[in-house]
Structures are given as C-alpha cells and as structure tokens.
C-alpha cells in the first residue's frame, strides 16, 4: 500500500493507505479529524469541504494519494486554540447552524469565498453555496453569518 504525506492543519502527517482511500476517509479514520463530515455519496452535499492549497474542495471526491505534498486545512485547523476564526464566530453569533452537521463544510466554503471575494453580496453568497446543502436553517442565517464573517475577516487584516 502506498504511503501518503501531506500537511494537515499545519502539521506534517503521513499514513499508509489503499489507493482507493478518499481524503475524507484519511482525515476521519487515519487522523481522527472527524469534523469533516460525509453527508452524501454523489459529491453534492458539501459537508466534507476542506481547503487544499488555498481552494475549497470536496474531500469525498479526491483520493488521499492525490494529496501527496498538499497543504490541507480542515475545520479543526481554523480556530486558534479557544479563539474562533471570525467566520466560526459569525456562525455562532448569527445562529448559522442548528444540527451542526453541514456546518464544517459551510464554514470552510464561506472562508474560501471571502478569501476570493472579500465583500460578497447576498446573491453571490447564495450562489457560492450551490455545493453546500443544509436541511436545518433554510440558509437564511448562514447567509447573514457569512455577510458578518466577511466583514470581520476584512477588519482583521
């Protein structure tokens, strides 16, 4: 079985995996990073979104072996200890989550959006979330949270 090495949340990690191992399996099962979730098997729901080399990617649709040498950030890598990332704080402040299952993917997607578009409009936010399903919130407060998170991320710079 091949060995794969990558940087996850700033730490160098490596593991022996079957080639068919998905990144999300490597994260959850090998590294024990269970914040990244699996909500579907057709690459639609976005619960598994992580950041790979600066872009949001569905970790259920990429093999771990494809991530050799990559820099991966998961939801566990966003906060600085007990200090939440501004987008995490915004989701909490604006009740952008209920059951919490889609939340890691939502937040990772949102952070990527704001990185690429620091002042997104409501329509741009809604369009960007095309690949992230939520069944609880009706997206209303997710959109509000991302608007606020974008402002907070801008202020932090």
């Amino acid at each position: 079985m091949p060995t794969v090495s990558m940087t996850v949340n700033g730490k160098k990690v490596s593991g022996t995996v079957e080639p068919r191992t998905l990144l999300v399996q490597f994260l959850r099962e090998t590294l024990g990073l269970t914040g990244t979730h699996v909500g579907c098997d057709t690459s639609q729901c976005g619960a598994c979104v992580v950041d790979i080399d600066g872009d949001s990617v569905k970790s259920c649709t990429i093999l771990a072996v494809q991530c050799e040498g990559a820099n991966v950030t998961t939801i566990e890598g966003l906060a600085n200890g007990s200090e939440l990332h501004p987008m995490q704080e915004a989701f909490r402040e604006h009740h952008g989550l209920q059951c919490g299952f889609c939340t890691p993917g939502m937040i990772m997607s949102a952070v990527d959006l704001v990185k690429k578009n620091p002042n997104p409009t409501e329509q741009e936010i809604r369009h960007w979330l095309e690949g992230n399903l939520c069944r609880c919130t009706g997206y209303h407060n997710i959109v509000k949270a991302i608007e606020a998170g974008a402002k907070a991320m801008g202020a932090r710079k």
Partner: peptide, 21 residues
Amino acid sequence: VTRKEDFRFVTGRGTYTDDIN
C-alpha cells in the same frame, strides 16, 4: 442567547455517531 452547543459544532468537535469508533 447564542447557543452553548455551538463552540463544538463550529470547531468540528461535535460527536456524531459516525465519529465514534
């Protein structure tokens, strides 16, 4: 009141059944 449960959810530290091994 903002939710007490949210810290674990926004940091990916919830414990759903599939997270348990």
